[in-house]
Amino acid sequence: MAFEELKEHTENIQDQANVYFKSHMAYYKLWGFKVAMKSTTLILKFTLVLLCFSMVLLFGSVAAGFALSNWFGSYTFGFLAVGGIYLLATILLLLIKDKIVEGPILEKFSEIFFND
């Protein structure tokens, strides 16, 4: 009789462990889906903003090139001046890229993954 009770309790424990495992698997699937969707939408938003900013920068650069060309009296010097401004901006960004890019991105993805 004791053996049958022990067998019953063992089967009950196995059933409960199976239910526990399945519920946790479902939870982590949903959690993974949520994190993947938040990350995907964040990247998509960033890409759209970057695309719009690139268009503004392109047309602004052409306008600045023509404006400086008028001021210098030469198209070559005007567009070289715009190129020089971008060269200086690129060098500046290379010097401070970790503070501007790496920190905020790491912070945002840490918030997505660990704060929920």
Rank of each mutant, 00 (worst) to 15 (best):
I91N: 08
F114R: 05
Q14S: 11
S74M: 03
V62I: 09
D116Q: 10
T10W: 02
K22Q: 01
V19F: 00
E4C: 07
N18Q: 01
K45S: 06
L95K: 15
N115I: 05
M1F: 10
L44G: 04
F21E: 04
S23E: 06
Q16M: 08
F3H: 11
F77S: 14
F109P: 04
P104R: 03
A64S: 01
K22P: 00
L94S: 14
H24C: 00
K29F: 00
N70H: 12
D98F: 09
V101A: 07
V35A: 10
L42M: 07
N115G: 08
L92E: 15
M37C: 08
D116R: 10
G60Y: 02
F59W: 15
F72T: 13
H24F: 00
G84P: 01
A17G: 04
M55H: 06
A17Y: 04
S54V: 04
A2Y: 14
L6D: 08
A26L: 11
V56H: 12
F53A: 08
S54E: 10
L48V: 09
V101W: 08
S69W: 03
V49C: 07
V19D: 00
F113W: 14
G78W: 03
N70Q: 09
F109W: 07
L42T: 12
N18L: 00
H9W: 07
T76C: 12
L48S: 08
V82M: 04
W31H: 13
L93Y: 14
F72E: 03
S110W: 05
W31R: 11
F53E: 08
L44N: 06
A64L: 08
L95S: 13
A81F: 04
